[in-house]
Design a protein around this nucleic acid. Sequence first.
DNA 1: GGTCTGACAGCGT
DNA 2: CACGCTGCCAGAC
Length: 105
Amino acid sequence: MPKSFTIKVLNIVSKIPPGKTATYAEVAKKAGSPRAYRAVGNILNRNFRESRWQLPIIKGKPVPCHRVIKSDGSIGGYAKGSLAKEKILLDEGLKIEKHKIINST
DNA sequence: GGTCTGACAGCGT
DNA sequence: CACGCTGCCAGAC
């Protein structure tokens, strides 16, 4: 079992399957603290920057932090820019309308 | 060791 | 319906 919350978050995010997305609240919840969504975003942001703008590797697996979105389904924020994040999500095969993720319908 | 920040979420106006 | 303020947690300085 992980030692720090950061490891948990990175681990969970790295478990997000392609073409899917997870909200900060979900990640935080799975990390053990449903109210730590603030910390989740903070961790990912810092981690991404510290990783030299590349996907951080946890347990030998990349951490697609761009798959983490807001609870409203909106893109939310992104170190490289919400627009870039949206573009990546589109490339993942997700459907985006008005800067918002459309999961099934 | 205390204090401020931050890629959010929820409620109120 | 859109915008604003507050509350929360863990991390970094």
